[in-house]
Design a protein around this nucleic acid. Structure first.
Length: 225
DNA sequence: TCATTAAATTGTT
DNA sequence: AACAATTTAATGA
């Protein structure tokens, strides 16, 4: 089996799909490589693909007219996004930027719609996926408006351990402090301080380019005010 | 396999 | 934003 169908077979939405549907899905997926800093899609632009991260790290967010950046979510290896634009057939409502060099899987609109029309399992996944995202977006509003930088870093970290949105993230997350800072909307300096404090409290442990979560409950609820 | 160099990451100011 | 210290990756003997 070639590497591509290997990836498709292991995708989170592929679990429970019958082999014929899986094969149809695999045929509708292509792959592209994005360099660090490259834009995968821009707000207002059309991108007629459902997007999955084979390998890498992507920041999903928007920039207001006065230049304020707001992160909606991060996307790590194994994450998929863009189903909203597929279902509604409209331009993207956000920017997606590769924070590090990333391999991106693109599922054509036709394939996505075929699965949507034919596969009960795929629909089940979509509902679950959207449900998790709504919960995360609600939390994001609080996150960016109320919480301080340390708590923001903590929440962004804890999201990576949501098994529906980030299926491949295990006990240890491979991310640098700079990348985490980009996602949480804080400077690398503050990200560094936040991690040190979280580690001092025994919530996480970190080493070079990797973070282990020791206490998911406290990380998720972390509040520094 | 080891040594040297370059690049990336981190802690601090 | 800039600096020094440290780790990892890459290169070639």
């Amino acid at each position: 089996m070639d590497p591509q169908s290997q990836f498709v077979k292991g995708a989170i939405w592929a679990r429970g799909l019958p082999p014929d549907e899986l094969e149809k899905a695999a045929r509708g997926i292509s792959e592209r490589v994005f360099a660090k800093g490259a834009q995968i899609c821009r707000r207002g632009e059309r991108l007629d693909y459902w997007t999955g991260i084979v390998e890498g790290l992507v920041k999903i967010g928007a920039v207001s007219r006065d230049g304020k950046a707001m992160t909606f979510a991060g996307a790590a290896s194994g994450s998929w996004f863009g189903e909203g634009s597929m279902l509604k057939d409209e331009p993207r409502q956000y920017d997606a930027v590769a924070i590090r060099a990333s391999r991106i899987a693109l599922m054509s609109r036709a394939t996505f719609m075929w699965l949507y029309d034919h596969s009960q399992e795929f629909n089940r996944f979509l509902v679950r996926h959207l449900n998790e995202r709504v919960g995360q977006f609600i939390a994001t509003i609080e996150n960016d408006r109320i919480l301080g930088p340390r708590a923001r870093v903590a929440r962004h970290l804890s999201w990576f351990f949501n098994p529906v949105l980030y299926p491949q993230v295990a006990a240890e997350l491979a991310i640098s402090q700079e990348e985490l800072g980009l996602l949480a909307g804080v400077s690398r300096t503050l990200a560094n301080r936040a991690l040190q404090e979280l580690a001092a409290e025994g919530i996480i442990a970190f080493e070079r380019s990797a973070i282990r979560v020791l206490d998911h409950g406290r990380l998720r609820a972390y509040d520094d005010t």
